[in-house]
Amino acid sequence: MNRKAEVICLQCPLACRVEVEVDKDNKVVSASNYKCKRGKTYAAQEIINPVRVLTTTVRVLTRDQIHPLLPVTTREAIPKGLLQDAMKQLAGIEVKTPVKYGDVICPNILNTGVDVVATSEVLN
């Protein structure tokens, strides 16, 4: 079964609405309505394996009543379809202090090979 989609290209402000179609082996069968090559490549990526950087928070065991959360990010983008599962996994994590900026909070989340790291720090 071929899959078709309209992908809004985010590579430049033109924001082409690229019509793209792939076959069952994820080969691009057709692409149209784009103004440059980047649009075609981007659209193919978006239909074959869209990825997103996930930024969220985890709970931190701290005395600080006002800041019970630590902001975190995946170091690289992970498959879009895994975002909700990644959120659920991170919801179960409680981090001990001190946490330094860049500390790995969850290594290799959902076997993506991508680590989740702190984007702030909580010292105590």
Binding site: T55, P71, T73, Y101, T119, S120, E121
Partner: peptide, 8 residues
């Protein structure tokens, strides 16, 4: 960067 990272 994220907002907290920028401020950090």
């Amino acid at each position: 960067l994220s907002g907290p990272a920028y401020i950090h």
